[in-house]
């Protein structure tokens, strides 16, 4: 059900352009208000100087073509790999290099300090590596046994 109609196009430079109510075309960036708690809801289209130009209550409200544009843009901007498994860690003392499997493929992250692991909820963790990339562990209890055991050494 599409109830919201926005004048959204992608220009040849690959930027998302919104035609505002005033009829001007502005480059916009979609931003999720609750990237973790409710990623599909409450998305704002923000201009390059940081002003909100449009509000999308639910992503599903948009017609297909536009929703795809927004989703594509979000996908190219958001980078929070989700850790699916921890294969090895170099040591329990930090800094420690972890070989992890994420939803975006395998990666070696460097954990600088135990403080870089933040508990978002009882089962959810956010881990920032030495380059500032944030890794999400969506559900601790769903990791396999050996990953959980390795992670446990830091919790």
């Amino acid at each position: 059900m599409s109830t919201l109609n926005l004048q959204l196009v992608r220009n040849p430079f690959g930027r998302l352009m919104l035609t505002t109510a005033q009829g001007t075309e502005e480059e916009v960036v979609p931003v999720r208000s609750f990237p973790i708690a409710a990623p599909e809801n409450s998305i704002s289209l923000v201009s390059m100087d940081g002003h909100e130009l449009a509000w999308i209550e639910h992503l599903a409200d948009l017609p297909d073509a536009q929703r795809r544009l927004v989703e594509e843009e979000l996908a190219s901007r958001e980078f929070v790999p989700e850790i699916r498994a921890i294969k090895t860690i170099s040591s329990f003392a930090t800094p420690s290099t972890w070989q992890v499997d994420t939803d975006r493929g395998p990666f070696a992250l460097v954990l600088e300090s135990e403080d870089d692991i933040r508990r978002i909820s009882r089962t959810m963790l956010m881990i920032s590596d030495s380059n500032g990339i944030q890794f999400l562990v969506r559900d601790l209890t769903k990791l396999d046994r050996s990953s959980r055991k390795l992670l446990d050494g830091f919790l």
């Binding site: 040849p12 430079f13 690959g14 190219s76 901007r77 980078f79 380059n131 500032g132 990339i133 944030q134």
Partner: peptide, 25 residues
């Protein structure tokens, strides 16, 4: 660059020709 991801974009007057992404290291 945007939260841990860097982007290189090759453009000319007509538009974007190619785009590459990398992590900040």
């Amino acid at each position: 660059s945007h939260v841990g991801v860097g982007t290189l974009e090759l453009v000319d007057d007509g538009g974007r020709l190619a785009i590459w992404h990398y992590t900040m290291n």
